[in-house]
């Protein structure tokens, strides 16, 4: 248990930042309790609303700075959906854009000191990934009927291999939401935990002489990790979105 207090007084609690606790009072976490997770999800929604409603209020032909950020995000995802999943996937654009914005804002707001990162929780990313999985599966069957099963039947492979490949394809299809969600949650959790571990070394200078060397090193390491985390926060949202587009392409064009 890392919650152990060592003799020197260094406190390692890298996972404490992920604890979901009620915002008001001290009771149980019920279904409708307002928790820190609720707060930071609401902040993400609020920030997105500010950017996309207040920022684009002017409807200017020559955009203001905030409006051009909104337009840049719009164009970025719109192009991604069109390039990766095809033109007919554009009807899913609002859904994909919602997911992308929620993830990217949660990731970035979670990088603020003392913040809580909703996307570092398996519960959240699993729901996002299951949502994508169900959407893709339902769309696949509605658009192609039983032809969607052709996704698992690799017609370019030798006949003898096809059942084996079909088994592998089915397994990989059902592993998709698992890897999809754990990738995002794991990345966010890992980065934050590593920063926290380095941060735990920082007060060593107050306790022992070796801190003269360790403390600056840990502060440099925190800074470097923070820079990496800014990159990861965006890349993971990008990857989640582009994988959604790839899966959607499979649903719309199941032929291998």
């Amino acid at each position: 248990m890392a919650a152990e207090e060592h003799g020197e007084g260094l406190a390692f609690h890298p996972m404490d930042q992920f604890i979901v606790s009620p915002l008001f009072g001290d009771g149980e976490v019920g279904v409708f309790t307002i928790t820190n997770a609720t707060l930071w999800m609401a902040l993400s929604v609020l920030a997105i609303a500010l950017l996309f409603i207040v920022g684009t209020r002017g409807r200017a032909i020559v955009p203001t700075r905030i409006q051009s950020i909104a337009e840049l995000a719009y164009g970025f995802i719109h192009k991604m959906v069109e390039d990766v999943a095809g033109k007919e996937a554009l009807s899913f654009f609002p859904y994909i854009f919602t997911v992308f914005l929620f993830i990217v804002f949660s990731n970035f707001l979670g990088l603020l000191p003392m913040a809580f990162t909703p996307t570092s929780h398996i519960a959240v990313t699993a729901i996002l990934a299951i949502g994508v999985f169900l959407t893709v599966t339902i769309v696949g069957f509605v658009k192609n009927g039983a032809g969607f099963l052709g996704l698992f039947w690799v017609s370019s492979a030798p006949l003898a291999l096809r059942p084996v490949l079909a088994l592998i394809e089915v397994i990989s299809y059902f592993v998709r939401p698992v890897s999809h969600s754990i990738r995002l949650a794991g990345n966010m959790m890992a980065g934050h935990a590593v920063i926290k571990v380095f941060a735990a070394f920082a007060p060593l200078i107050l306790i022992s002489g070796i801190g003269v060397a360790v403390t600056p090193l840990s502060i440099v390491a925190i800074t470097a990790m923070y820079g990496l985390e800014i990159l990861v926060a965006f890349i993971q949202a990008y990857v989640f979105t582009i994988l959604t587009c790839v899966y959607l392409k499979d649903a719309l064009h199941p032929s291998h």
């Binding site: 890897s179 754990i182 794991g186 890349i235 582009i242």
Partner: peptide, 20 residues
């Protein structure tokens, strides 16, 4: 570039799994 990021994501996910 998109393919690059997908490839990196797949490779990195396995590292994340071991971290998990």
């Amino acid at each position: 570039t998109a393919t690059l990021f997908i490839g990196i994501a797949f490779a990195e996910a396995l590292g994340i799994f071991s971290f998990l």
